[in-house]
Design a binder for these strands. Structure first.
Lengths: 366, 366
DNA sequence: GTGAAAGCGCTAACAG
DNA sequence: CTGTTAGCGCTTTCAC
């Protein structure tokens, strides 16, 4: 850092403040930290000196001495997507209340980045790390164990760390049942490769479990997991749709497609419509996330809503709890909600049979 | 921070590493920093010790000593919106290449937050601060001057700091001309209050300048700047549309509405369509930003495209340059591009007369 | 209530 | 090429 100086060019540390105020450095420290009772008079002198000299404490020095940084690391997969962005926003808002700062890092779905980012965070002595999304990184998480740094997992669950997750499997299971009962018979699942995100596995499990429960034969199950749907989601989906889901006549093969992401769903819808396939009459499409434009999309997108703010808030609070010594394993489950809109035809009464009517309900499992 | 210890419970500093390796601390420091020539043999010993003890250097101690933090502060207005999120993503990606870390703060369009965030950044001795968006904060920027901390402004220009901005006024001016020539006669501008963001002023200036140039009379100019369009943009816009822009019969008053944001535009489009107003036949609507779903919106949204990645990259690079000593005032202008889609009717040949055909061209002004 | 002094972990001179 | 030493700015005993 450029050395911080006051207008007259002298560097200003706690020592100069003390001199200026006619006290000793530790007194300044005490008024700064409220760590001893100081006369109002002395306090005033010190405050005046701080003001006059534009003194700002040096966090590095303080951290070094106190062995605390009030820094929390956040590693997420793609900050440019609304899901992570909103989650980040709410963590930032929450952390500032406790005077914690966040160091946010974007892994871009690449665990090599994560490795480097974790090192950087440890060097800076973060007091804890939140991972939002991701997967396939047992080695990294294990490495962090060695440093005794608290970890919280968001939107995933490895069975080993405190975490905040959504009830993916259950929701998708219910959705499949509702779709089946609404008359859908041929089901497709479309998304990124499952190993990119831990939660994708649970969603897919719900998909399969639902189909099994409804007795859907293997020949009426399609699943597409491809990197094409990972990068450039909406464009990639638009481009890939016809090849993946229509027959030689350009007619849709499945009755309904479940996607792992609203953008993919929207790409599919746009591609279907522009190829003369009617949505939802000829093909149902379901998104995931319920990002803010999905309800204004034409037709409004049927999708699974996850509360991104809540995710962020709970991740932060849980980590804070762990940092502050509550080391018991904790597990927060946030409920998703099916937004039954116009890219599918599911009668409300059928849906309501499967869906818990309370939105945003939380479960706590010790 | 929790003190970092190795598995056997001893804290591990450079001193333990040195002992373990049978060298002296400064040697370890040298191999760590490449600041002296060390025998391969010694180096190997040190590296082995580091590995064995899980040593991670303490950034606070290093920062304190070196008077450098390799930390850059970023203050932006709303990280949950795609514009800022993408910009942040590209800054993060760029900074990591130079081994800088970013401390990102979300001001939520509130300068009181900015004040607190600036203090926090200064305490942590960031080497520079990027402000993306915002305005009305001369006092804050001036305060930062006192601390001698480099500042770069993104998507705005106060005439005093190095900055990266878009050619807002010019683009909007050209757009108005093209709209007029395409037959539009009654113009509306809709957005947040101008003082929330510096760039809004330039856009509005372009709006007025264009109308003046085309000889549009005052009675055919509508402008709505309201906080209603600021919070909950898309929902707020949807809710407010009929009241703001239609007459007692529910018919649109303006021929075309320019908005300050794609979400507002999409809210308007959705509201218009659901009230039986045809877009673009009866009403043209133009967005701003060209967020990723806008081209898949129905009808695809005519909007002004700003390259958010470039904004982030240039902000970071410019700040880096200033940090590294190049203190000359620099000013990067990024060109916007009009995406002529289906919520307006502008013949391509008319548009092309006004628009520089090279997209993403950069201007550098000394 | 206030002051003196030690030391957090590291780096940078400088001497050897 | 390696070792000794001082000190970055702050907090925190511990005396007074």
């Amino acid at each position: 850092m450029k050395e911080i100086k006051n207008s007259s060019g002298a560097k200003v540390t706690i020592v100069e403040v003390a001199k200026y105020a006619g006290v000793v450095p530790s007194t300044v420290s005490h008024v700064l930290n409220g760590t001893a009772q100081i006369t109002d008079e002395t306090k005033a002198k010190v405050l005046r000196a701080i003001e006059a000299l534009h003194y700002t404490p040096n966090a590095s020095a303080r951290n070094l001495r106190q062995k605390r940084t009030r820094l929390i690391g956040v590693i997420l997969q793609d900050i440019s997507s609304e899901f992570y962005a909103k989650c980040t926003a709410s963590m930032l808002k929450e952390a500032v209340k406790d005077n914690y700062a966040l160091m946010v890092m974007d892994a871009c779905f690449d665990n090599n980045n994560v490795r480097a980012q974790v090192s950087a965070l440890i060097e800076r002595r973060v007091e804890g790390i939140v991972f939002v999304g991701g997967g396939n990184d047992e080695d990294i998480l294990q490495e962090i164990e060695k440093y005794n740094i608290p970890v919280v997992l968001g939107d995933r669950n490895d069975g080993k760390h405190p975490c905040v997750e959504f009830n993916n499997e259950e929701t998708v299971y219910h959705l499949i049942c509702a779709l089946y009962e609404s008359g859908y018979r041929k089901f497709a699942y479309a998304g990124e490769p499952l190993d990119i995100q831990e939660n994708l596995k649970y969603r897919y499990q719900g998909f399969v479990k639902g189909l099994d429960a409804c007795g859907v034969p293997e020949r009426d199950r399609i699943h597409v997991m491809t990197k094409d749907l990972h990068i450039d989601k909406i464009d990639g989906a638009y481009a890939a749709f016809m090849k993946l889901f229509t027959d030689e006549k350009g007619r849709p093969v499945p009755d309904v497609i479940l996607t792992s992401n609203d953008l993919i769903a929207q790409g599919f819808v746009a591609a279907a419509l522009s190829n003369g396939i009617k949505v939802p009459e000829e093909l149902g499409i379901v998104g995931f996330d319920d990002i803010s434009i999905s309800k204004f999309f034409q037709p409004p997108l049927t999708t699974i809503c996850q509360d991104k703010d809540e995710l962020g808030i709970y991740c932060y609070r849980l980590l804070k709890k762990v940092i502050e010594g509550n080391r018991e394993q904790e597990h927060v489950i946030l409920k998703q909600k099916i937004q039954n809109r116009k890219t599918t035809r599911i009668p409300e009464d059928i849906l309501s049979r499967y869906i818990d009517k309370e939105p945003g309900q939380k479960g706590q499992v010790g």
